[in-house]
Each structure stands twice: as structure tokens, then as C-alpha cells.
Nucleic acid binder design. Sequence first.
DNA 1: AAGACGGGGGT
DNA 2: ACCCCAGTCTT
Length: 347
Amino acid sequence: MMTRRQRIRAALLTWYDSHARTLPWRVAPDDPRVPDPYAVWLSEVMLQQTTVAAVAPRFERFVARWPTVEALAAAPAEVLMAEWAGLGYYARARNLHACAKAVAERGGFPRTLEGLQALPGIGAYTARAIGAIAFGLEVTPVDGNIERVTARLEAITDPLPGARPVIADAVRTLFDDGPRPGDTAQALMDLGSGVCVPRAPRCGACPLLGDCQGAGKGLAAALPARAPKAVRPSRHGLAWVATHKDRVFLELRPPTGLLGGTLAPPTSPWVEGGPCDAAPPFAGSWRPVGTVVHVFTHFRLTLDVMTAAVVPQALAGRAGQWVERSGLDGCGVATVFRKALALVPEA
DNA sequence: AAGACGGGGGT
DNA sequence: ACCCCAGTCTT
């Protein structure tokens, strides 16, 4: 007689053996090779707060350019930032570099949860993901996917974020301390990504349907419950895009804070309330070329874009660089400023 | 405990 | 156009 836990784990792994996604950083379930901790770490950091579709091509570029953690550690920071541009949460790129240096220095990744979690940019989730997938530690990472799968499986109706510890306990009880921990974690991720999806779960395709208490109660689509969302404030600002022939003037933003370490045109402060009337950073025949709306996690930005043809001498003493418009891809410009620069007509 | 921190995808 | 999604670090 199998217990419910045994049934769930067996069904999950059997499903994974035939349905595992093929991903650039993944070792297939029937492949005897051991996953490369560098690839597991890099992919998991890139995947924090984002999606497989966005990460896959960027991951391939990263490993082609830096095949080992030692190579990444030796990369110049601005080159790494340029490769990261567009992926968001730029502190991850800074921490990635710091982590690579620390790992190269100590001669490899630590093989314990505590050792992993002490590294920059590796928290409770990523430590468990690397531990389970790369080192076979019998632990289960809890990301949004696994949280959702588990809340449904166990019909946990308390709202997030308060329910987080309850769900984490359920994950431990069901999935820790068993065989194939890396495949178990990846199976849960694939299930959450393709079957047990947020809005309209495909319960008919789920290998765990028979043991899913949420589906049994008709609750699956409604779980996990969430506390009411906070209202997102609105801020306004101006961006000044100086042009000279086929170049635009960009500055390096401060290393920490919003979009830290990325290249951007000069902007006004971004203030709550109506349009602002800040003075341009330097003289020019400024004219408006349009407006960009960009939504950040904690506010919505309306950016009015101004442009002027400016001779470089007029900016003498101002730190920054004139960048060719054709070279803007790969040079560390965040998405909001790519949208702004796209509004500026060719000289 | 709460807030800061991007961007992309579905509807 | 709007809504939803998702880890780590700092304060």
C-alpha cells in the first residue's frame, strides 16, 4: 500500500521522465551526466522574477561568452552589465559578478545550503535549487510555481503572503528527504509552468489530479489566494536625449538604486503628481518627441522625452559618453530608456 | 515586517 | 490598456 506522499512523488517523477522540458541549462532525466553547478546557478539567478522564454536566449549568450565561473569572475563589470541589459533587477547582475568572484576565489561552489546562501544574490530559494539540482541535496526550492502547485495540492486557502510558511511546511513534508531531489524540483517547476498554471489550470493533464485536494474541492483555479493588491502610485519625469550626428548622449546611472549601473540619458527627478517642469541639464533647442509609459514594480512612470541637437563641446565637463544609435543593443541600456530613445528621430 | 527593485506575457 | 507574475536585499 502506497502512502499519498509516495503516490504523488512517483506520479510526479514518472510524468517528468516523459514530459520534461528541454532547457539550455538542464540535464535531461535520462542523461547520466551531472549538472554543471555553474549552469544551474547562472540559470536560477537569471530566472529569479522572470520567465524561461526571456532567459533562454540570454543564458546561451552568457555561457558562450563566459563558459566557466572563473571566466565570468574575470569579466569587466560594464561588459557583464551590457549582457544583462533588458533582464531587469540590475542588482542581480552586480550580485552575480560578486558571487562569481567569491566562488572562483574559493575554488568552486559550496555544497551546503548554508554555504550557498551566504553568497551574494543567493537566497533561500536559489540555495535549495542549486543544492537539489546540482548537488543532490534532499531539499526542495520553493518558488512561485511550487508554492502554487502545493497550495492547490493541499487546498491551502490562507492568502499569500501570510500563508507562505504554511505552504513551505507542506512542501517539506511532501517533497524533501527523498530520491531524485533535483528532478523532483524541476518536475514541480515544469508542472507549475505548463499544467498547474496561474489562471486556468489544465487539471485534465495533471499527473497529480487524483491526489489534488484543491481540484477535488473545485478550488484549484482560485488558489493560491492573495491579499488585496496595493495601489501603484504614478510618477512623472523628463528625459533629455541630446543628439550629435548619429550619436546620443548617455550617462552611467549611480551603481545602486533603480536601474543602477545602466546607461541612460539625463532625466529630471521623477515626482508623484502632474507633469514636472524641471530645467534641462544643459542648453539646447529642446523639443518634445513623445511620451513613454513604463510600469515598475512599485510605481508607474510617465516619461516625457525631449531632444535637441547639441555640439559635444557644450557638454564639456559632464561625465557621459556619445553612443552610436546603431550600437545601443548590448551596451547596457534598460528597457524604459530604449523605449525613450526609440522616440527620437534619426538626425 | 515592509519596501525597493524590471520586464514580459496573457487577456 | 490592464492585470498578473515572481526572489533577494535593505531598512
